[in-house]
Design a protein around this nucleic acid. Structure first.
Length: 741
DNA sequence: AAGGCAAATGTTTTT
DNA sequence: CATTTGCCTT
């Protein structure tokens, strides 16, 4: 068989990694160095030339998207469908294991997955049961505690409270939460991983089986693994020395949610026979962009070490724009996007990246005003929308009457006269008798003592669910969804909610039917092989799918629009033209991250990720004054800007500005520092204000200073003031609230 | 049960 | 500022 196409177009390091003999490897893959290529080509190589059975390969990724694209790429390389190969996310694979070995995992066969929102609800209920004041013990904090413990592989019995009330209380919550999950057959995301890990440890024979089977382990984005994920992998690998991990310590940006950069740092010690291969040639960015990235990341300690290079030449310099405020920043970005388009490029090649979502609004307004098509990534996912969750809860109840979380969600949605009081009563009944709320509700209507009205309402609900179930006995998934949406009354309910909101919800309900129509259980199926147990109904598979795969944000990904997203969500993407907006101290690095060195380094890596998204042109922008949460703030330029070698960057000015009067003659192009006005101008007054050049002023934050220069007039007027120790700053008069001395 | 109002809160996000 | 939450009223 001709396998040359697998090695073609690989560079030396990539080829080395692809063809390396079986064993353990750490592939340190810099941004844009072809890491996914290496993974997919290696798998194809092993299958085609080394006669490795796809059956013996397990490849893990972090997101569903990455898993899907890896699958697709391998299939196209091998030119055949993947059979028997396990390619998926940590959670997806863990789920598969637990479904297959539910008995060994001590789970009910029909266990259900709790997503983040479900989990929060359960914890809230637990808090109420424990009679803890949610003011003192916020549910979110408790969720965070529980997940953090599970991510570390810790059960309540492993944790010592040392008499600390915080730990002690959260331990109580953790225990009660575990019981609640146990009772309801519910498994949260972290639990999937922890259970799968314990499944290994408690079932040596089973572990042995999988160890024998998976002689080739591959892990993507290794720097993002948390403690339990790495532990799971290590147990599976055993002493086989068969794990190839790909990652980049410089792109570890999820430490705040449990990812352990230490995993990649320790890998070589944990696998002493492993070899490290560095992929440093970059095929994405210009030399200038790479040098900037290298220069910046050099400021971090304890790096494994890596220096990106390209043979493509330096390209354009990076651009730095200092805006008066966030509006000016947005306006500037718009002007550059327009230029970009005028040069014959497309919108979708441009991306605006920012540290926090709140920044997107001003940018969005500017795009809107200029009629530039844009798409903002992030925000609510499809399966997380309220109306969708409601429908799913009905579906869940149809599938399993004892699903209490679903019961609570829709028992009175749309409202049908079952108020808090009644629900409380049902809940208490359920707990007292250790039965599900469904059964408690049944008991309640059978109880001659309960009030007629309540009885009627509750009975109505129970019958509704039973009716839906009857009506859908032989129905397929699509009609099942349609019937639920219709019969539940949700459709009418949202039809009555006029305005855009209700309209959007109705559209989402339609979208759900489409999702059901296109749902392919084969893709998700837990039982493609290793069948061991009764296959799930398509409805249950669909519900699991909804929990594990939250759904793409919006569907119009193919349209030609400017891409706007946070730096975090930009990881893994690339764009010819990139703007990093809001390069200010306090914003980026974020104010909450600057005290701890470790967190600051993560911010720096985030900046590194941002820079390395750019292929051709990179603009860094910052605003000297910015409205944050309603209050005007004056931030200095981000330290990260200063950590980029000066010779790679030019300071730029807007070329034209329609909104500013022509007499504010500032330099019209290219490199320019802020020109100081000719001395003959000294003493001239700033148009339409009381300030003069050379005048002494006081600023609430920076103290006393002298007006050096000005631009614009009226509302747009801004002045340069030298504050001595604070340095000189450009301030918008309209915002700065300067006092003349 | 819905609507109104004050208070709190405000990084990053996948599964 | 502006959104969300909870609490209160009707």
């Amino acid at each position: 068989m001709d396998v040359s196409h697998i090695l073609e177009s690989l560079n030396d390091a990539q080829r080395e990694a692809v063809t390396a003999a079986p064993g353990s490897y750490l592939i340190l893959a810099g941004a844009g160095s072809g890491k996914t290529r290496v993974l997919t080509h290696r798998i194809a190589w092993q299958v085609q030339t080394e006669n490795i059975s796809p059956h013996s390969i397990l490849a893990v990724t972090f997101t569903n998207k990455a898993a899907a694209s890896m699958k697709a790429r391998i299939e196209s390389l091998l030119d055949m469908p993947l059979r028997g190969m396990w390619v998926g996310t940590f959670h997806g694979l863990a789920h598969r294991l637990l479904r297959t070995h539910w008995q060994d995992a001590k789970l009910p066969q029909n266990f259900q997955i709790l997503d983040a929102d479900d989990q929060l609800r359960v914890v809230k209920r637990v808090l109420a049961n424990l009679q803890l004041d949610e003011k003192k013990w916020p549910a979110r904090q408790a969720v965070w505690f529980i997940n953090a413990q599970k991510d570390e592989g810790l059960r309540p019995q492993h944790i010592e409270d040392y008499g600390d009330l915080y730990t002690k209380t959260h331990l109580d919550i953790y225990r009660a939460y575990e019981e609640a999950c146990e009772r309801g057959g519910m498994v949260d995301f972290a639990e999937l991983l922890l259970r799968a890990h314990e499944l290994w440890l408690n079932n040596p024979a089973l572990l042995k089986h999988y160890q024998r089977r998976f002689s080739h382990l591959l892990v993507d984005e290794f720097q993002d693994t948390n403690a339990i994920q790495y532990a799971w992998l290590r147990v599976l690998a055993g002493d086989q020395d068969n794990m190839l991990v790909v990652g980049d310590d410089d792109q570890s940006i999820y430490g705040w949610r449990g990812a352990k950069i230490e995993n990649i740092q320790k890998f070589s010690t944990d696998f002493p026979n492993s070899r490290t291969i560095r992929l440093e040639q970059n095929y994405r960015s210009t030399g200038a962009i790479l040098k900037a990235a290298n220069g910046l990341i050099d400021g971090n300690a304890d790096r494994l070490g890596k220096e990106l290079w390209t043979d493509q030449g330096d390209g354009d310099l990076l651009n730095l724009y200092s805006a008066f405020n966030e509006v000016d920043e947005a306006r500037y970005i718009v002007s550059r996007v327009k230029d970009w388009l005028a040069q014959g490029n497309s919108y979708k090649e441009a991306a605006i990246l920012y540290r926090s979502n709140a920044q997107s609004r001003v940018l969005e307004e500017a795009m809107l005003r200029s009629q530039i098509p844009y798409r903002i990534y992030g925000g609510q996912r499809f399966f997380e929308r309220m109306e969708i969750r409601h429908v799913l809860a009905y579906l869940r109840l149809v599938s399993n009457r004892d699903a209490d979380a679903a019961f609570e969600r829709v028992v009175n949605t749309p409202t049908r006269g079952i108020g808090d009081r009644t629900v409380n009563e049902i809940r208490q009944q359920a707990r007292a008798n250790n039965i599900s709320m469904w059964r408690a509700a049944k008991q309640l209507i059978e109880n001659p003592n309960s009030k007629g009205r309540v009885k009627n309402a509750v009975n109505g609900f129970l019958e509704l669910i039973a009716d839906i179930d009857d009506a859908t006995t032989d129905a397929d998934l699509v009609s099942l969804c349609e019937i639920v949406i219709d019969k539940s009354g949700l459709k009418d309910y949202y039809e009555k909610e006029r305005g855009e909101r209700g309209q959007a919800r109705l559209e989402n309900l339609e979208e759900l039917i489409t999702a059901a129509r296109t749902f392919d259980p084969e893709e998700d199926s837990v039982f493609s092989d290793e069948a061991d147990g009764v296959p799930l109904t398509i409805l249950d598979e669909f519900l699991n799918h909804a929990a594990l795969e939250a759904g793409e944000g919006q569907g119009n990904a193919n349209d030609d629009c400017v891409q706007m997203m946070t730096l975090h969500s930009a990881k893994g993407l690339e764009f010819p033209l990139v703007f990093l907006a809001g390069m200010e101290e306090g914003l980026f690095p974020h104010g909450r991250s600057v005290e701890e060195p470790g967190r600051l380094e993560e911010e720096r890596r985030l900046c590194y990720v941002g820079i390395t998204r750019a292929m051709k042109q990179l603009y860094l922008t910052y605003a000297e004054s910015r409205r944050i949460n309603g209050a005007e703030t004056y931030n200095r330029v981000s330290r990260f800007v200063n950590e980029i070698p000066k010779d790679l960057m030019q300071e730029v000015r807007a070329q034209t500005s329609v909104t500013r009067p022509a007499q504010t003659s500032f330099s019209t192009s290219g490199i320019s520092s802020r020109g100081i006005r000719p001395s003959a101008m000294t003493g001239a007054s700033v148009d339409g204000t009381d300030f003069k050049l050379g005048q002494q002023v006081v600023h609430s934050k920076f103290g006393e200073g002298v007006v050096l220069n000005y631009e614009g007039d009226g509302k747009q007027a801004r002045v340069q003031v030298n504050f001595g120790s604070e340095g000189s700053k450009w301030l918008m008069l309209a915002y700065a609230n300067l006092q003349a001395l």
